[in-house]
Every structure is written in structure tokens, then in C-alpha cells.
Amino acid sequence: MEKICMPPKRIEEIRAICREHGNDAGELINILHAVQNKLGYLPREVQELIAMELGIPVSKVYGVVTFYSFFTMTPKGKYPVSVCMGTACYVRGGEKVLEEFKRQLGIDVGGTTPDGLFSLDSLRCVGACGLAPVVMVGQKVFGRLAPADVKGIIDEFVALERGA
């Protein structure tokens, strides 16, 4: 038999979420949302457990996770950076801001810094086009950015982390 290893607490957390959704395969996307909210990402073991709980093939779960860009199999940083690439942000230099984040953090889109502090993603439109180009770090919104502002934003969170 093939063994899937997980700590007991995590197994219970995931099972509880599946139960809250009635172990219903039709609720897969909602379950994945809830589990990702809790764990920050959806690693392989977690997908296998969800598949078992819902009685569906793990290929289905994996298919959904890889289809929707919201889901991730990589752990997010403590401060997830999302750079808007919507039309307004893009034409006002969002891409240059994104490039600067990549350079400063030394990671690509979808990556996480080795210290687990920052992860980088691009997204389409946060609904704040008046502030374009826009970057979100966690729930905090930064607007009208230029590449020169990037280092300051990163430093702000590094300082916050040192203070904590």
C-alpha cells in the first residue's frame, strides 16, 4: 500500500473542512478554497487526502488545482505580493514594477523567497484602476507605483518582521 504522510492535526483540519461541505464532490472548489485559506497552499498530500475524503480520483483534484490560477501548490510567503497586470495597470507600467519586484526579491512569478517571507504573483485587476499601477501585499494596497518605490515597500515589511 502506498502511504501518504501528514501530521495528525493537519489531517483532522482537512477532514473537518470536507465534512463541513458534506464530503460532496460538487463542493470541490469551495473545499479547495477553504483548505488553501487555512494552509496557504495545496500540496500534493493535501490533494490526495481531499480526493479520498470526497471519493473522487486525485487526478480530478489536481486538474482543478492546476486549472485555476488562484490555487497554488507552492507555499505562499508570509507577505504575498500581487502585482496587478490588468489593462490600466499594465499600460501605466505594471510590468516594470513586477520586474523590479522579481529583481529585488530574486524570485519569479509563482515563487517564494527562501526565508518564506515574500511570494510573488501577478493578477488581473483588483478594481482600483484609478490607482494604477497597483500592488497588493497581503491585504494592503499600494497605488501609483513606480519601480523606484519597490525597495521601500519590501523594506517596510522586512522592518515589520524584525519588529515583530
Partner: peptide, 18 residues
Amino acid sequence: YDRKPVVEECIYSIKNNG
């Protein structure tokens, strides 16, 4: 032979599945 995957409780550290 039993070849069914099972979930087993064990100590495991969060790893990056990239």
C-alpha cells in the same frame, strides 16, 4: 496485494512541492 494508497499520521515538515 493491497496496493491502495492510505493516509498515515506521521511527523512531516512542510515541504515545497514546486
